[in-house]
């Protein structure tokens, strides 16, 4: 009986988080403590909110298909050249109040991993602040940071580092 229960638990656990496993007896269901607010965005992903035809977010000729804002070394201010991009997304979000985004901040590989999480967060937050000034509501944006953990470019010099000092705008469901 106990064995059946355990294997049922195991199967459901594996189904729940396919990308992750604990080695010995992965019976630990991941529980959300009472104090934690459920995070908006990242988890529940209702697919296909937009119509199939002419999704401006996916149209390569539309600025809304551009999602990356780049930053200088040790800096987190949104440079002028990326303002039109951020403003276009702001207009989309103010006219689509049900749309939600995550802004993901990233850094290059140099320095402390935890400090880079914080620096990446500032880069995400800078984008959010520009959007806030354009009237996007707080509840439409979650800012998170990958720090240096998920580099888009893998080499160890400035050619890759500049690619990795970046915030990405990701719409819920994408």
């Amino acid at each position: 009986m106990k064995r059946i229960l355990l294997s049922t638990l195991l199967v459901s656990l594996l189904a729940a988080c396919a990308s992750q496993e604990t080695k010995e007896q992965p019976k630990a269901a991941v529980e959300n403590r009472g104090a934690a607010q459920p995070s908006a965005g990242a988890e529940a992903q209702p697919a296909g909110q937009q119509g199939v035809a002419a999704n401006p977010l996916k149209d390569p000729n539309n600025i809304l298909s551009k999602r990356s804002v780049y930053f200088d070394f040790d800096k987190y201010d949104v440079k002028d050249e990326y303002k039109p991009l951020v403003e276009a997304h702001s207009r989309y979000l103010t006219s689509h109040k049900d749309a939600k985004i995550t802004v993901q901040g990233n850094t290059d590989e140099r320095g402390s991993r935890e400090y880079n999480i914080a620096l990446g967060n500032r880069r995400a937050d800078s984008v959010k602040k520009v959007m806030g000034a354009m009237g996007v509501t707080d509840s439409q944006i979650e800012t998170i940071s990958f720090g240096e953990e998920k580099p888009r470019a893998a080499c160890h010099d400035e050619s890759c580092w500049k690619e990795n000092r970046r915030s990405d705008i990701v719409y819920q469901g994408e």
């Binding site: 080695k23 630990a28 959300n32 934690a36 940071s145």
Partner: peptide, 23 residues
């Protein structure tokens, strides 16, 4: 996204310690 967990080494039991909005 970054979430903090606490895991027991003997039992492998783990729980979310902090999962708030953001990091």
């Amino acid at each position: 996204k970054p979430i903090v967990y606490v895991q027991s080494l003997a039992s492998s039991h783990r729980q979310v310690l902090a999962q708030f909005k953001g990091n």
